[in-house]
């Protein structure tokens, strides 16, 4: 009886949650349906009209996907995006985890000042830095090369990542560090054996942040890398699909799903690992 009551009392809450989830997902559903409709249909009627006869498969087409895949040269664009995204995610997180550890647990002169400058960098808009940085890149021959854009993304990502990791790492219990040093561990050993494993959940979340930011970036790639097919990532190619008056925008709906595939499958696939990382060791004390 009590169980029954608790089920019923949960119903309003569930209803609210389901409603919010539905509202949340509605635009994506619309996008998905639109991506399977022909351009003439898209122009003349809204995507919800297919709901009147959802199983009439003649009103769906794969034309948009075919067009997108051919026009953006999907293989090269995907490869370019990966070539940008993976290093531009790993490099800043690697550097930032060293830096965050140092800021949190090592004593060195100027630590305070450096950290204040770093926090200050959080508010510098990246658009402001483009011309000076591109000038330097031109001098060094880095403009239009992949290492150039890795450096750019590293620079833009570092302040926030260091800040987030610092908050997490500085919250680790100091007894752990004391006992490690008493046992004779060097700072690097402490970092490797203690800090990295303990801060996996934080590392996982900043990885997601940085990965998505670089994956979805258009401006930085366009400015530092240029838009020639040799180097252009997915975002640059996708933005060039639409005509200058916004013609063919229905291609964008399909392109959005094409570019979503990898991040989505990656995070759905790794979700269990991330959750595990957050809970690992939480009950052992």
């Amino acid at each position: 009886m009590k169980k029954l009551i608790s089920i019923f009392s949960g119903i309003p809450l569930h209803l609210v949650i389901i409603t919010i989830a539905l509202i949340w997902i509605l635009p994506s559903v619309g996008l998905l349906i639109t991506s399977f409709r022909s351009s003439a249909d898209v122009a003349t009627s809204g995507w919800w009209t297919v709901l009147q006869h959802p199983f009439n498969f003649t009103c769906y087409t794969l034309e948009n996907y075919r067009e997108v895949i051919i026009r953006i040269g999907i293989g090269k664009a995907f490869w370019n995006t990966l070539l940008i995204t993976i290093p531009a995610t790993i490099i800043p997180i690697l550097i930032a985890s060293f830096a965050a550890y140092a800021f949190a647990w090592m004593d060195f002169p100027g630590r305070r000042l450096l950290f204040v400058i770093l926090v200050g960098l959080l508010v510098v808009p990246l658009q402001m830095t483009m011309i000076p940085i591109l000038r330097v890149f031109n001098k060094l021959g880095l403009a239009g090369t992949f290492p150039g854009i890795w450096f750019a993304h590293t620079g833009y990502g570092l302040p926030l990542i260091i800040y987030l990791l610092y908050n997490f790492i500085s919250g680790l219990p100091s007894e752990l560090f004391d006992s490690c040093s008493i046992d004779g561990a060097t700072p690097f050993q402490i970092f490797k054996k203690l800090v990295i494993p303990l801060s996996l959940p934080a590392l996982a979340s900043v990885t997601i942040f940085q990965f998505l930011w670089v994956w979805n970036d258009l401006l930085v790639a366009l400015v530092y890398l240029g838009g020639t097919p040799d180097v252009a990532p997915l975002t640059v190619r996708i933005s060039a699909l639409v005509g200058s008056y916004g013609q063919d925008w229905e291609l964008l709906t399909a392109a959005a799903f094409v570019s979503m595939i990898l991040p989505l499958s990656l995070f759905l696939g790794l979700q269990r690992y991330f959750v595990k990382g957050i809970l690992a060791g939480s009950v052992k004390g």
Binding site: L83, G144, T145, F146, G226, D230, V231
Partner: peptide, 13 residues
């Protein structure tokens, strides 16, 4: 490995 690939990747300019 990725760094090396990137350095030898085409310079477009």
């Amino acid at each position: 490995v990725v760094l090396l690939i990137g350095i030898f990747a085409v310079n477009t300019f």
